[in-house]
Design a protein around this nucleic acid. Structure first.
Lengths: 153, 153
DNA sequence: CTACCTGCAAACTGTTTGCAAACAA
DNA sequence: TTGTTTGCAAACAGTTTGCAGGTAG
């Protein structure tokens, strides 16, 4: 179901600002940082405040419309419609590739077997080095990289 | 090799502050947040400044003596002597369990096969729900959790 | 009408930096 | 002695909050 419909259904108002933010997240097929969303929004409509954007993103996350994950210092957002999946982002050139939901199944199972802990990877964004950048002789040794994920409420 | 020796070998001074920080990291068998390290240090010696602690931790990471990973909003630190390994931390009670190095091997392989990207998981800290807390009826559905890792330079 | 939303400005949090004084070697 | 290291205070960046005025329904 579309985010706009979800908003209205749950009794939230569909303001122009919210509509714009929802549109941007839907139009982007990748993941966006909060900063990118702020820039896109403000390039289309002057005067939309970043706190409005953060508040809208928080709301959309609570409604299950978007995933929010942390990548390094930033949060990144991704619409939740295409279901569970993961990303790898190249450290060097920033290129990103999607990966299937099942990627972490072996890890989930192994963690459960070895420790009894239950973990679930809903939307993980990890950093790596893409084939092209590797061919250029870059190494990922010494690169800091992080992966994070967040449950969809 | 011990952190103190590494420091001296590379021409860095072994000050009381640095010795104290190294001791605390070694004494702790788990992982510590920057804040915990600051608290421990300051409870033993008054007047040690947090910027000194951050600078020392940064240095120790550069020397390969400690790992630094992000867990949510904080960095956490762990001495690097026991080699590669990972952790799961319970969302609810904070209990933590160590996991073997090889945990993410299937993921590393799958990412490489599917995307050509090269990723390496040196020291991942993830959140989950421990058996006891699960038995208490807590669910991890709806919990935000993150895993992050950092390469050891 | 009137809650809900927004813009603004200011607060916040964890981390980082610049600089003069202190100190290890 | 002397260049590294420290403590202090202030900067920083991204995110969050309080509040008065604005607007969707």
């Amino acid at each position: 179901m579309s985010c706009s419909v979800t908003l209205k259904q749950k009794g939230f108002r569909l303001t122009p600002q919210r509509r714009l933010i929802v549109d941007i997240i839907h139009e982007s097929h990748g993941h966006l940082t909060a900063e990118e969303i702020i820039d896109y929004v403000q390039s289309r409509v002057e005067g939309v405040n970043k706190s409005t954007i953060y508040r809208t993103l928080e709301l959309l996350e609570e409604l299950g419309c978007v995933y929010r994950s942390r990548l390094g210092d930033h949060f990144i957002y991704h619409h939740a419609e295409e279901g569970r999946h993961h990303h790898v982002v190249c450290h060097s050139c920033g290129k990103s590739v999607d990966l299937d939901d099942d990627l972490f199944a072996p890890v989930e199972q192994a963690v459960e077997e070895r420790s009894g802990f239950h973990v679930g990877f809903t939307h993980v964004v990890m950093r790596g080095l893409c084939p092209e950048c590797r061919a250029k002789g870059l190494h990922d040794h010494g690169w800091a990289f992080g992966i994070e994920s967040l449950h969809h409420h």
